[in-house]
Amino acid sequence: MLMDRTDLSAVQRPINTAHGLPNAHYTDPHIYDEERAALLMSDWSGLAVASDVPEPGDAQPLTFLGIPLLLIRDTSGAVRVFHNICRHRGMILVDAPRKIEGAIRCPYHSWCYSTSGRLVSTPHVGGPGQNTADGIDRALLGLIEVRSHIWMDVVWINLDGDAPAFEIANADLLARWAEFDKPLYHGGADSRFQLTVQCNWKLAVENYCESYHLPWVHPGLNSYSRLEDHYHIEAPGAFSGQGTVVYRQLTGEDGTTFPDFEGLAPKWDTAAEYITAYPNVLLGVHRDHTFAIILVPQGPSETVENIHLYYSRPDTDAHLRARNTEQWKLVFEEDIFVVEGMQRGRHTPAFDGGRFSPAMDGPTHLFHDWVAGRMARHRAKPHAAE
């Protein structure tokens, strides 16, 4: 039987008459599951960062959309993502971050896999002392790899395997920020933090896309990078966000700043940009540092935000890095009451999705339109009618 489907026709109207997504897209477990397939599994979603596994053999178990995955840097140095299960009986292979010494060994029956995913050992599979058996073809029973790509140190994954190549799907964004396609150095332990917010993941995207809220939610930031200093970034069907023509570098007590990335155009002397790469990665670039925020949905009404900061060199000043992290943490924490307040507001049937300011909400409306379009495409597939 068909589940009750939301009417998204008003979402895809021109911005001056459009409504936002219906409440169910923020509160209903069935719609969450539908979006899970239509938006997050069918596109290039952010999973983690390559810096989570800096050395060959480093392995990090992760759960994304309820799916157990394994992030690993193999012995050749390549970062890979596998389903974190043994091909024998589906046992979880790695249950805590660790260094893989030798092979990945299943703790159940000791089937062993190389860090590149090959099944290399099946002890006693044919009986005591018999390590081979008819029907157990090791060449066909390696770990199940998830399609992945690394850009801006983010590990992007396409779980259903059907998305266009990353370079094609994100061609416009890669071209826009080609100047930042160079080595990025994660600041380390003092340059990563996590926030857990009681809201649907899409509300975090919607808030990040626009600068309209700056004067009231971020008064400190707005004191020097004012609302009128910002501009919209709009790429229908791919990404949206905001930029500012006023970026003020963080300066130490002795006048030091972070070293700039080399080869940037003069506009970056004073500019910065903040873009959501649909569906779930929030990115920021500046002359002297970048950041990535990976939104990990935990259900319809909770989201984990994993934040990572990067620099142009590995030897930046630790005190200045810590100050930069604290400054950004304050900014992102200022948004929590807003996204959580909107989540609570989605529980009243009186709310009809809201409206958009034609002048100020263009980037957010584009995201709503993208969601509606992807949902329509998903619902048109034969399986959706079963």
Rank of each mutant, 00 (worst) to 15 (best):
E101T: 14
V81M: 07
F332R: 08
T196H: 12
G57I: 05
H186D: 09
W151M: 03
L21N: 01
L65E: 07
W370Q: 07
E386H: 14
S42Q: 11
T290W: 01
N280P: 08
N170F: 10
E210V: 10
S301A: 15
E340F: 08
N324V: 01
I293H: 06
S211Q: 00
L250N: 08
N131K: 07
S301M: 11
L159F: 03
W111G: 06
D288Y: 01
L21V: 04
Q327V: 14
G353Q: 09
A372H: 02
G187M: 03
F193H: 12
G127K: 04
F291T: 00
L330C: 10
D160C: 10
T303G: 08
L309C: 05
V296Y: 01
F356R: 00
D43G: 04
E334R: 05
G161V: 04
L309T: 06
T325C: 10
Y108K: 05
N84D: 12
C106K: 03
R248N: 10
L227F: 14
R13W: 06
I275Y: 00
Q12V: 15
Y231T: 08
R105W: 02
E101Y: 09
A10V: 05
E210D: 12
A175E: 15
S45Q: 06
W216M: 14
L203C: 02
R5Q: 13
E35T: 07
V146N: 03
T132G: 03
T27Y: 07
D181E: 14
D190K: 10
D315N: 14
P266S: 09
T251K: 14
D43V: 04
Y224N: 08
L227D: 01
A48L: 05
L203N: 06
L184M: 11
S240R: 00
P358G: 06
T251C: 13
F337V: 12
A37N: 14
H378E: 11
D229K: 02
F261P: 00
